[in-house]
């Protein structure tokens, strides 16, 4: 019997088999959806609901000290756009980020390079260097506030010894010194974070490539830029992103040192939002500010992730 005689039957069999498979796959897919549905629901509830509520509140007139909660359209957004103090706070935040981030990156990388080779006491040093990261930022801020204190702080004391007289430097009041003071505290606390991530990344660089480059006569800089940097770049990008976002939310250290002063000279966007929302109870206005921050950061994060090709 020619084989073709069996074709229709076989075809039917295949078709029904495919149908069964499709059906099973659909059932399987549905079952998966059922399984993940509760967690998706919870995620939406805790992730999306607050965001929607934030948007709703930003169009209302909630001030906490008043019973009026009426909708007032775009009034909060208009006020926000016209609020010079808010724009200044945003500018201060950008300044802190633009200065602290490169310093932390370069110092972190330099320290990681230093510790990549096995040196005596390496583990102890690494553990000590990482200590600032585990301290709560508000505690770090309070500690630096004492360090900079003009009466009891060691910094003025040491300067006094060096100049051979009493040093009364008002680090957190003098407009020329207040930014450096905050940046020192910030860099002190978070450079070890960069160091730790970059040390891990550097440890994973293929040694054979480095040896090959060395045999080929490539210098240190050439090796670094052509082999090391591309190898550690994904980790470095993530480290920059995390620290960049953290710096954009900078609050604790500045609050402990200056509370945003003198005047509003060091007020960051987080401090501005805190003061408006939790000291002056402009709840709806603060919601508008928070939404603006969320939108801004989302754009930055998406652009950054796209750039480092992590969001594909």
């Amino acid at each position: 019997m020619p084989a073709s005689c069996f074709q229709p039957r076989e075809q039917t069999h295949r078709t029904s088999l495919a149908a069964i498979r499709t059906k099973a796959a659909t059932r399987d897919r549905r079952f998966k959806y059922v399984l993940v549905a509760p967690s998706i629901f919870v995620l939406l509830l805790i992730g999306i609901f607050p965001l929607i509520y934030l948007i709703v509140v930003s169009f209302q007139n909630i001030t906490m000290t008043d019973m009026d909660t009426s909708f007032q359209g775009l009034l909060n957004y208009r006020q926000m756009v016209n609020d010079t103090r808010m724009w200044q706070a945003l500018l201060h935040t950008v300044i802190f980020t633009a200065i602290a981030l490169p310093i932390e990156l370069v110092l972190g990388l330099a320290m990681a390079q230093l510790f990549i080779d096995r040196i005596p006491g390496r583990q102890v040093f690494v553990a000590l260097l990482v200590l600032p990261v585990v301290i709560s930022p508000i505690v770090a801020g309070a500690t630096w506030s004492l360090m900079f204190d003009n009466r009891f702080g060691p910094i003025n004391q040491i300067i006094g010894w060096l100049i051979g007289g009493e040093a009364t430097i008002l680090w957190t009041i003098n407009p020329n010194l207040v930014y450096p003071a905050i940046l020192v505290a910030e860099v002190w606390q978070w450079t070890p974070f960069m160091f730790l991530l970059l040390l891990a990344a550097l440890s994973a660089v293929d040694k054979s490539q480095l040896e090959a480059a060395s045999i080929d006569g490539a210098g240190w800089w050439r090796t670094f830029f052509r082999i090391v940097l591309p190898a550690i770049w994904p980790v470095m990008a993530i480290a920059i992103l995390i620290r960049g976002l953290d710096l954009f939310r900078l609050f604790d250290i500045v609050w402990a040192l200056t509370r945003g002063g003198p005047g509003t000279m060091t007020e960051t966007i987080s401090i501005f939002a805190y003061v408006k929302g939790f000291q002056q109870f402009d709840t709806s206005f603060t919601a508008a500010v928070a939404l603006m921050i969320i939108v801004l950061l989302s754009i930055v994060v998406m652009a950054a992730l796209k750039r480092v090709e992590l969001a594909r």
Partner: peptide, 22 residues
């Protein structure tokens, strides 16, 4: 007053600006 803290906050900031030399 109503929202006293807002008035006081402006004053507090002003005083810190005084010590900054304004």
């Amino acid at each position: 007053l109503i929202q006293t803290d807002k008035y006081e906050e402006a004053l507090r900031q002003g005083i810190s600006r005084l010590w900054a030399g304004e």
